[in-house]
Computed example of a mutant assay.
Amino acid sequence: MTPDRLFITFEGIDGSGKSTQAQLLDVALRAEGVETILTREPGGSPGAEEIRTLVLQGDPDRWSAETEILLFTAARRDHLERTILPALAAGKTVICDRFADSTRMYQGMSRGDLRALVDELHRLMIGREPDLTLLIDMDPEQGLHRAKARQTVEERFEDFGPALQAQMRQGFLALAEEFPQRIHVIDGNRTQDAVAADILRIVKAAPV
Rank of each mutant, 00 (worst) to 15 (best):
D4V: 09
L6W: 00
I8V: 13
T9P: 00
T9V: 11
T9M: 03
F10M: 07
G17W: 00
S19A: 14
Q21F: 04
A31S: 15
E32Q: 11
G33M: 10
G43Q: 04
S45H: 05
A48S: 14
V55K: 02
V55W: 01
Q57W: 00
D61R: 15
D61T: 10
E66Y: 07
E68I: 09
A74Y: 04
T83F: 02
T83Y: 05
L85P: 00
A87T: 14
K92W: 08
C96R: 04
R98K: 13
F99R: 03
D101Y: 01
R104I: 14
M105Q: 05
Y106C: 06
M109Q: 08
D113G: 12
A116D: 12
A116T: 12
H122W: 14
L124K: 08
T133P: 04
L135G: 00
D137L: 03
M138G: 00
E141M: 10
Q142D: 05
A149F: 07
E154W: 03
L164S: 02
L164Y: 02
A166D: 01
G171I: 07
A174H: 07
A174I: 06
A176I: 11
A176G: 14
E177M: 07
V185Y: 03
I186W: 01
D187I: 09
Q192N: 12
V195C: 06
V208I: 10
V208Q: 09
